[in-house]
Design a protein around this nucleic acid. Sequence first.
RNA 1: GGCGAGUUGGCGGAGUGGUUACGCAGCGGAUUGCAAAUCCGUGUACAGGAGUUCGAUUCUCCUACUCGCCUCCA
Length: 509
Amino acid sequence: MTKIRLHNSRTRKREDFTPLDPENVRMYVCGPTVYDRAHLGNARPVVVFDVLYRLLRHVYGADHVTYVRNFTDVDDKINARAASMQADGDTRPLNAIVQALTDETIAWYHADMDALGALRPTHEPRATQFITQMIAMIEGLIAKGHAYEVSGHVLFDVRSYPDYGRLSGRSVDDMIAGARVEVAPYKRDPMDFVLWKPSDAALPGWDSPWGRGRPGWHIECSAMSHELLGASFDIHGGGIDLQFPHHENEIAQSCCAFPDAGFARYWLHNEMVQVEGKKMSKSLGNFFTVRDLLDQGIPGEVIRYVVLMTHYRSPMDWTAAKAEEAAQTLFKWRKLTEGVVPANVAQESVLDEIAGDLNTPGALAALHKLETQPRALLFNARLLGLLNDGQGAWYSRRKLFYAANDTLKILLQKRRIAKEEKNFARADWIRDALKKRGISITDMPDGKVKPQTSFDFADAYFDKIEQSERKEVFGDLYKSDGSIDASALVDRYISLVASELLDELERIE
RNA sequence: GGCGAGUUGGCGGAGUGGUUACGCAGCGGAUUGCAAAUCCGUGUACAGGAGUUCGAUUCUCCUACUCGCCUCCA
């Protein structure tokens, strides 16, 4: 059996992975708070843990892996968004807006992550469906002396859990010393965090022993993972930014509620996403969603490849140049594997890289070496979620435009044949039709034909094409600085014109 | 201020105590109406300093720089 090795952030070491139960390997990954389109940073853990999910399914069998990724659909950010929609004229009650907003966002999320070729997890619980379990868990924590109620809030008492801070490697005292902690007057300790807080009549809320209220963020994941995976399970994943405080708090809650279970055994954290070398942020204006990229004509598969180009524990930089390199490689691979039946065994070179702490760049390198074996290439690329059926529409479109490159040659050949057959009307039609589109052809003394045009015609043609389609038609011509090579553009223009004329010629005949 | 990660050839990006990463770009060649595509070949690297070692890009320490987290955040 393939030996899986994973970097466990809990121990800061690479460890052999041994599941609690090989018949049911269990993984929990923190999902999105649903109030807006998923951005690239949201997409990274989805892809990273999808690779791990696929690996586990490959090694232990597809029916022996349970993968849970939640939707946080109760949260102050959601309430704030709903309130601002109300302020913008939405007349529905706040609760109705929240419901509609979270439903819609989840549908978007599914569509966008599907486009990235990510498998749907086994369970995708919504936090609001597990309020009962959260309340039960909070009651248990109060009963055990790990939480206390004060002015309608229930707070976790961090001092009651000596290991608090272990995952993120900080002591409670250190945290207080350097942090800008919001110290609510009712907290026993500044680091105590909310398990339950009161909701006024307008906000979403549920009845509880502490009055009508809503859960704190951290308790959601503890309750859902417990309900769906049990008190102890194998892997817990998420972005490195969640390590503190979210995961720290999850551990505190779960380990205090179920002291003997041990909670999650392997903790995996992916690093953050940057854009053109800078942190992605709304203020820098380099903030974009997965949908933005898809709308620009960048296929989901290409986005996925770019994510896989960087090891998950390194910061990943999104650049246009990388996207084009990814598209180029995937185009080549799709061409090589077109119509090919995939092999049925994984290549050791690829599998070992994935199993070695998800070294996806290494796996991609191994795939390059399989280019001479299309069947193996196809099978192994699919281990990474690439080259799947149903994700190749972009390939077919791009291929059409590449194929257009041969068209001028064919068109001029038809003219030559027409001349040989003394069909001068047809030969002249070709020449004049080209001329009308700004392409003049000259018969050289040696019998060769030289097409000529000016950049203006190509440029005008380019302008005429809708922004959204340009990436498809000219995407491969972009240079890394975002400009297009002028002579390449002219060549492409000639090819496209020739292609159109060939079609027309066929219709005439 | 506290904690942590990183610095590899033109670019991206793995990895290793001694042997070609890999891809893109470049260069040379084959093929070619010009290109594209394809194929073959090829150069360049391990931030700086000190130490450990027969030998360090790989281990240790120091310096410089970059980045992240500590506040909602994937």
